[in-house]
Design a protein around this nucleic acid. Structure first.
Lengths: 163, 163
DNA sequence: CACCTGGCTAATGCATACGAAAGCCAGCTA
DNA sequence: TAGCTGGCTTTCGTATGCATTAGCCAGGTG
């Protein structure tokens, strides 16, 4: 277990997972569309209205998120209406839930007004509030200082050295 | 415990914690600056080079993140050099760690090339990889479908109804 | 005191993100 | 077959994000 943090310049973040994630959901509107998707929104104009963005931006984001595989189009039909298309989360999209919850949690802690947070996400079974936490595979809770950065198989080293 | 999801139009997200968080770190460059801060970067030109953005963007982001209280300036001095200023995480900034880890985790799962992820974050004590997970206050693990949305003290209801 | 270095700032221009307003189109109802 | 409605698309204009290049400034060294 080498601590790469000791020589940050010996490796590059050209293939950084964080940057790659942001290439897909790196705009405010994309993340807010995903928020609404987790809240159950499925129809075009509901997305536009609830996120508070215009229709062109809504169409562009839905197209991108569908192309990236986070959402999928599906036909639906209400009684007495023609068949229409709507959007729902895929497994790839659902996997973004920790990101949305972590963003909500930070806002709840650091960016609410005096009234407190607008919504509380609770465990369906027991009713207790839900938090985004960091945990290692052995079950230990992790604080920011408790982690080290190790080389992964895709690491790109720079000329400097390879230790 | 009312499930607000049943009538999403009865309440507004005008004071949404997610949107408020994105008002602070809602750009790619801001989140990548925070990534580097967690990796230990502190100096202006290291941020610019490692994030891969120009100096004006670096200066703007660092100024915004400092004004928002996620980073703080502090003087430092290397031997034989004049006193300079650098940036380090505050408690408010450190609290963003779950967001960064959740973004990394999604990219590791869904957006790596065949080689695998570039870095692996491990628990310092036991060496096991770290994951961002959702957990309720009673200690239960939460999957996306296991949660419900309840009204918080800051909820804004729309005219429609107030149940 | 001239020079060097790190940490910025300024000027310019391009690309993307986005809103507002309008229009299009498919297919269900009347 | 004429409307109506939801789901877009088009157009236009503005705002933000960002790179590039250049320059400034403070304070240490020679």
């Amino acid at each position: 277990m080498s601590d790469l943090l000791e020589d940050r310049d010996a490796w590059s973040m050209a293939n950084c997972s964080i940057a790659r994630t942001l290439a897909v959901v790196g705009t405010k509107s994309a993340l807010l569309i995903m928020r609404e998707a987790f809240f159950g929104t499925r129809r075009f104009d509901d997305f536009a209205r609830r996120v508070g963005i215009g229709e062109p931006a809504t169409a562009a984001r839905l197209k991108e998120l569908t192309a990236a595989g986070l959402l999928e189009r599906f036909p639906y039909r209400e009684p007495g209406q023609r068949t229409r298309s709507a959007y729902r989360l895929t497994a790839k999209g659902r996997d973004l839930y920790p990101v949305i919850m972590a963003l909500r949690q930070w806002g709840d802690t650091w960016a609410t007004d005096e009234q407190g947070p607008p919504v509380i996400v609770r465990h369906r079974d027991c009713g207790a509030p839900v938090h985004a936490v960091l945990r290692c595979e052995n079950g230990h809770d992790i604080a920011p200082g408790d982690s080290v950065v190790d080389a992964g198989p895709g690491l790109i080293r720079t000329d400097a050295e390879s230790a």
